[in-house]
Design a protein around this nucleic acid. Structure first.
Lengths: 243, 243
DNA sequence: CTGTTTCCTTGATGCAGGTCAACCGGCGTG
DNA sequence: CACGCCGGTTGACCTGCATCAAGGAAACAG
C-alpha cells in the first residue's frame, strides 16, 4: 500500500525537483531547515486511493512526482473531476480536517507530506509560506474558473482539444512535432471533461482523422501544429489553466 | 455612471454591514484605522459593467451591498458565469493588474474599494488580513469545485433546483414557507448554470407545477419544503457553495 | 500457451436540452 | 394613448451526446 521512495528520502530539499515551484519556493536558510525536519515522503501506485470523500486528512502535502486527481460525486454515483494535481501542486487545506473530495493517484505518485497542525504553525510564523500558498490558491481558483467555462459551454470536440493542448503544453519539450505521454486514462479524461468515455474516444479519433493530432503507441500523442489544436479548443488565448 | 453612497460614506468601518465577514473581519484598533483611511466607496446600477475582460483593474474591493457576476467568454460569444459576488465577497487579486473576466452588477451594487498597490502593502504588513484573504480564497475554490460538479454532471432540473436552494438558503429568514427575491434574471441564471434561458424557464415551470416551489410576483419564489427542493438538487448534503 | 482483465474503439439508437419562433405582460417614453 | 422594449414563457423541431452493446488489443496470471 505504502512505500518509501528512498532516492528522494535520502536527499535534502535543495535537490528537490519542485523546490522552486512548490509552497516552499520562497524559503531559504533557516526556514528551509525547519521544513526539512518536518517533511516526510510517501508514495502511491497508480490507481490507489489517497483519500476518500469525507476522510480525515491529517496531513497537507506537495505533489513531488506523478499526477493525482480530485473528484467529487453525487449520491447516485455520477462523478466529476474537480482538480488535477501535477508536480509542485499542493494538497490539503490549513484549518480543515476532512477531505471534501476523493483523491486518487492517476499515475505513480510521490508526495512530500507535513503534519497538518505543524504546517499551520509554520504558516502563522513564516509569512513567506503563507504568501506563496495564497498565490498558489489564487492560481488554482483561476484554473477552476477556466475549467468551469469548459464544462458549461464547450462542445465535446472543444473539450477534448482543450485537454490535449493542456497536456502538450505541460510536457513542453521544444521538439517538433510536439509530443506527450498522456497521464490520464480515457476514464479520467471523461471525468475531467464532463463527458463519457465513448465520447472522448470518438473525439480523439476524429481529431486524429482530421490530422490535428496523431497517436503514438498506447499513451503517446503528437501534435504537428499546436495552433490548429488551439483553434479546435475554441479559445486561442493562452489557456494555461492547469495552474 | 458612478455615484457615492452617502449613507455609507458618512459612517466608519465599525458600522459596516460586512464588518465581520469581509477581508477586514479580523482587523481591530490600529489596523482598522488604517483601512478606514484607505477605503472609498463606489456604486453601480444594476446592469452596469464594473470591468471588462482584460481591463486594467487598479483596485481591489469588498462587495458591501448587492450582487455582481464574474463572466468568462469564448471568442464566438458563448459565455459562462464563473463567480457570483455577494456581500462581503472580495474582488480582485493582489499581484495582478488585469481582470481575467467581465464583472457586471447584477443588482445595484456598492463596493468598498482600495487602491491595489496600497492593499498589497497592507497585506505584507498585516498577516491578519493575508490570513483572512487566504481563507476566503480557499472557500471560493471549494465553491468553484462544487459548481464544477454541477456544470459537468447535473441535469437541467437538478441545476435549477440547486441554484434556487442556494438563493433560498442565503436569504435564510426563518419564516415558512421559505421566501426569497431572485437577485438574478433568467439570463443570469442560465449563464450560471450552463443552460439556455428557455431551459431554465421550463425547469422553473416544471418545479412549480410539481409543487416544489411557487412564484410570488415578478421576482419572488417560495418553497414550502426545502428538503424536497434539495432532493431535486441531486445532493442533499449542505451544498453551501456560494462561499 | 490460454484465459482473464483492463483499456480502448466503434456502431446503433434514444433523449435531454439546444435552437428557432411566436407570444405575453409590464413598463417607460414620445 | 399607442408604441417599442425587455424579461419571461411556451411550442415545435433538431442534434449532440449519452446509453447500450459488441468486439479488439495489450498486459498479466496461471
Amino acid at each position: 500500500m505504502t512505500r518509501i521512495d528512498l532516492s528522494l528520502a535520502s536527499e535534502g530539499c535543495s535537490a528537490c525537483p519542485i523546490r522552486h515551484r512548490a509552497v516552499c519556493a520562497s524559503c531559504e536558510g533557516e526556514e528551509l531547515d525547519r521544513l526539512e525536519t518536518m517533511k516526510s515522503y510517501r508514495s502511491w501506485k497508480a490507481g490507489q486511493t489517497i483519500a476518500m470523500e469525507g476522510d480525515d486528512l491529517p496531513f497537507v502535502a506537495s505533489l513531488v512526482t506523478g499526477c493525482a486527481t480530485l473528484t467529487r460525486s453525487l449520491e447516485d454515483g455520477r462523478t466529476q473531476m474537480v482538480g488535477l494535481l501535477m508536480p509542485s501542486d499542493f494538497l490539503g487545506r490549513p484549518g480543515r480536517r476532512t477531505a471534501p473530495y476523493e483523491v486518487v493517484a492517476a499515475t505513480d505518485v510521490t508526495m512530500c507530506m507535513f503534519n497538518r497542525s505543524d504546517f499551520e504553525h509554520l504558516l502563522r510564523e513564516t509569512p513567506h509560506v503563507a504568501e506563496r500558498l495564497l498565490e498558489m490558491s489564487l492560481d488554482e481558483l483561476d484554473a477552476a474558473r477556466e475549467w468551469m467555462l469548459l464544462l458549461g459551454r464547450k462542445t465535446a470536440r472543444e473539450k477534448v482539444a482543450t485537454l490535449l493542448s493542456i497536456i502538450l503544453r505541460r510536457a513542453a519539450n521544444d521538439a517538433y512535432p510536439l509530443h506527450a505521454e498522456l497521464p490520464l486514462t480515457r476514464d479520467a479524461m471523461a471525468s475531467y471533461l464532463g463527458l463519457t468515455i465513448e465520447t472522448v474516444s470518438r473525439q480523439i479519433t476524429a481529431l486524429r482523422k482530421d490530422g490535428v493530432i496523431s497517436l503514438v503507441g498506447a499513451r503517446g500523442i503528437e501534435c504537428p501544429d499546436l495552433a490548429a489544436l488551439l483553434t479546435e479548443a475554441g479559445d486561442d488565448d493562452d489557456g494555461t489553466f492547469l495552474s
